[in-house]
Amino acid sequence: MRQYLQIYKEFFLISLAEELSFRLNFLLQSLMNISFLGVYFLSSFFIFDHVSLIGLWTKEQFLFFLSFALVIDQIHYLLFSFNFWVFSENIRTGYFDFILLKPVSSFFIVFFKEVAITGILTVILTLPILIHFGLKLELSFWIWLSLPVCLFFALALLLGLEVIISLLNFLTVEGMGVNQMRLQIQQLTRWPDFIYKKNIKWFLFPFLAITSIPVHSMLDRSYWFYFIGMMLGVFILWTLILFWLWPKGTRYYESASS
């Protein structure tokens, strides 16, 4: 474990050095992230200028949900998003050969190597917004205490589902389509489950659960049962990924360079 933490520290420092050598890129990526957040918040504000409810939620409840979803997004962007793009590129070019030869887990290198340092700025920007809407909703002490746990499991579920989709990279040559599918999942998680009709909701259940179950649980105690189910589901999902799906996926890998 200590060895992995040390390697992760090196990954982080390398990413930081890379970002600092292209400062204008840092600014442009920040502009991209801020415009992304701006579009979501402004759209919601403009809608709530004309309506008082979306489904059963008030403006504060809806914006609390949206901030929660965007915090997940930004943490995901900071820590994981680049790795998915690099992964499909590594499979396509055959660079994955070298990753398999390294004396640490290939899964760790593939999904933890790249850190998008620019994301720190937007995580810092979105967290106070989440707290602001939480305060407006007068959440209890215990709900505040459970917030990091909810964020962690939401992120773990999102990441797990994305890893499963990205395993398709082992079966395809061009990974852009796979990554597009992944991005569309993120789109779905930014809206509450109740906007969808029942049959669509069941079809999209694992994706909608990412943000909807934790936020519902924080706003309504009767949903805690679902959140416990989600935690169990996340454990099972990650056990499957690490001990079955990932090793099986790597066996499908046909080296492009050899």
């Binding site: 395809t172 061009e174 990974g175 852009m176 389509g177 796979v178 597009q180 599918m181 991005l183 569309q184 789109q187 779905l188 809206w191 906007i195 669509i200």
Partner: peptide, 17 residues
Amino acid sequence: ANFLAILIIPVFVFFAI
């Protein structure tokens, strides 16, 4: 499949939302 995933899926998801 890749081309269609890039071209069609985002538009469909956007519309569905």
